[in-house]
Design a protein around this nucleic acid. Structure first.
Length: 505
RNA sequence: GGCCCGUUCGUCUAAGGGCUAGGACACCACCCUUUCACGGUGGUGAUACGGGUUCGAAUCCCGUACGGGCUACCA
């Protein structure tokens, strides 16, 4: 079987959104499923949109999500360079070749001339006129000008681009791995620019040349590329032959609450849209990331994989290993998927519940420390995590549910105790703390039993005493069962907390 | 406007001619729990519309509607 080789090609223009990560993920899963290579190249041919730091950011996201490429500008490989800006000279040769073969031509039109054309030929029937078969002879290019004029312009180094010459009437079709056969009529496709005036290729030329040179066998990209697919198919036909063209799959879009998912949706609806926090260096705008919001990378790729794909069973929780085993591009749904943050959180919750203490430890420790609850005892932390993880949906929930294990409460939710507080209850706790001093068996069950015994002795319903006890130990109405808390806190600390709280009640 | 893609519960989806259209999230109710959760049980809820083809259509075909994408010397 032919070795599979797929690639992801981000442009360093900002953050890495959900759709982007899902594209990487499907690339990655497909490659690994077939035992092939996953490479990452950088599409940085548009200098004006290049954002400092974006490239590094992208690789950090991939690293966090566990989707590191086999080859990339960072990792190296046999088909580099992997930055398109470093391949500039390669593209020119192929563009010139196309001109020589009559499949492309030089165009000398200035920006103003193009604007004028779009304005002059604009009608109600045709709001956006294209540089195509019907108009190209009215423009200034090597098809409309005489050979002498063209030669003259070229020797004078006149700014020009190279455009593909769309054939007159031809049906271009290809088979999409997700959607089946798709065909286009070349009459309706315009003469796309292949090589820009600054010598950089456009996406159309670069993707074809790079995919060929890097021996890409399967190509996955967003649905928004479907309309330009005929250009790519034609370029493959002219340059390298259709036999070696990769198989295409156009992935459905990820939608927000109102149409296409945008960066703004995150801020507007309160959920992250990027893999990791991204601050735009130009505007200083921060877009929240899943990582910082408290998602586990395992949950993140799980929820993304299931947004548009399933294995045909009712299983929803998949490890990366399982995803690699079971992924198939044919089972990717063809319709766009609306992102549901509630469901995303559910995935994370499931992953936290099934994660081992060891894998959560360092993240929780960092979080607690940051929030002002230094962890002195790692063994204690482990027990705490085991006790509270079932009630945590996002990583920061651990702070709410466990910070009191590491710091005696300073304030109490008095509103919850005061109304029903009385001398009898105070006496109970005085007696209970005294009893605790001599308790030999220190565990939740024993503590609960002696608590209830004493309550019965004093003629108070144990239930009425549990809430005050909780407030004493944790400060508020939250956390795991009280006696488990007391068990972990230990005798000394429990007694200290009871006595301290009694002063405020 | 033109071209392309899409359309099953509110959301993600299963069912690729054949039993009451299944599951998950969310929501509601009950149970568990004298904190908050987890968990358990049950419930509400969908094949966009109109024509065909067929003994039989969510499924195949055509049309309509709606949604999305593209229509740059951006990717």
């Amino acid at each position: 079987m032919k070795k599979v080789r797929v690639r992801f090609a981000p442009s360093p223009t900002g953050g890495l959104h959900l759709g982007g990560v899902r594209t990487v993920l499907y690339n990655y899963l497909f490659a690994k499923h077939h035992g092939g290579d996953f490479i990452v190249r950088i599409e940085d041919t548009d200098q004006s949109r290049y954002v400092e730091g974006a490239e590094e950011y992208i690789f950090n996201c991939l690293k966090w999500a566990g989707l590191e490429p086999d080859e990339s500008p960072l990792h190296g490989g046999s088909y580099g360079p992997y930055r398109q800006s470093e391949r500039k000279e390669i593209y020119r040769q192929y563009a010139e070749q196309l001109v020589k073969d009559g499949h492309a031509y030089y165009a000398f039109d200035t920006t103003e001339e193009l604007e004028k054309m779009r304005h002059d030929f604009k009608t109600e029937q045709n709001p956006s006129p294209q540089y195509d078969r019907s108009l190209r002879m009215k423009m200034r290019n090597s098809l409309s000008l005489s050979p002498a004029e063209v030669k003259d312009l070229l020797t004078k180094d006149t700014r020009h681009v190279i455009r593909i010459k769309m054939p007159d009437q031809e049906t271009v079709s290809f088979t999409d791995m997700i959607r089946g056969e798709i065909s286009f009529d070349t009459l309706l496709v315009d003469d796309k620019v292949l090589l820009k005036a600054d010598g950089m290729p456009t996406y159309h030329l670069a993707v074809v040349v790079d995919d060929h040179l890097m021996q890409i066998t399967h190509a996955f990209r967003g649905e928004e590329w479907l309309p330009s697919a005929p250009v790519h198919v034609l370029l493959w036909k002219y340059l390298f032959g259709l036999k070696s063209m990769p198989q295409w799959a156009h992935l459905p879009l990820i939608l927000g609450p109102n149409g296409k998912l945008s960066k703004r949706d995150g801020a507007k609806y309160g959920f992250p849209v990027f893999a990791m926090n991204w601050t735009d260096p130009k505007t200083n705008d921060l877009t929240e990331g899943f990582k910082e919001k408290g998602f586990l990378p395992e949950a993140f790729i799980n929820l993304l994989a299931l947004l548009g794909w399933n294995d045909g069973t009712e299983q929803e929780i998949f490890s990366k290993k399982e995803l690699i085993e079971k992924f198939s591009i044919e089972r990717v749904h063809s319709g766009g998927a609306k992102f549901d943050y509630e469901k995303a959180k559910w995935f994370n919750h499931e992953w936290i519940k099934q994660s081992g203490v060891a894998s959560l430890e360092s993240g929780v420790k960092t979080l607690l420390t940051e929030k002002g609850f230094p962890v002195a005892d790692d063994a204690m932390l482990d027990k705490v995590i085991e006790l509270v993880k079932d009630r945590c949906t996002l990583l920061p929930d651990f702070v709410q549910h466990s910070s009191f294990f590491f710091k005696t409460p300073e304030e109490y939710d008095l509103a919850a105790v005061k109304p029903k507080w009385n001398e009898e209850k105070k006496n109970f706790f005085l007696a209970y703390s005294e009893k605790l001093r001599s308790t030999a068996e220190w565990n939740a069950i024993a503590l609960e039993n002696s608590f209830k015994e004493l309550a019965t002795e004093k003629n108070i319903k144990p239930g009425e005493l549990q809430l005050p006890f909780r407030i004493m130990l944790v400060g508020g109405k939250f956390g795991p069962p009280v006696f488990n808390i007391a068990e972990l806190l230990g005798a000394d600390e429990t007694i200290i907390r009871i006595e301290k709280a009694l002063l405020s009640f």
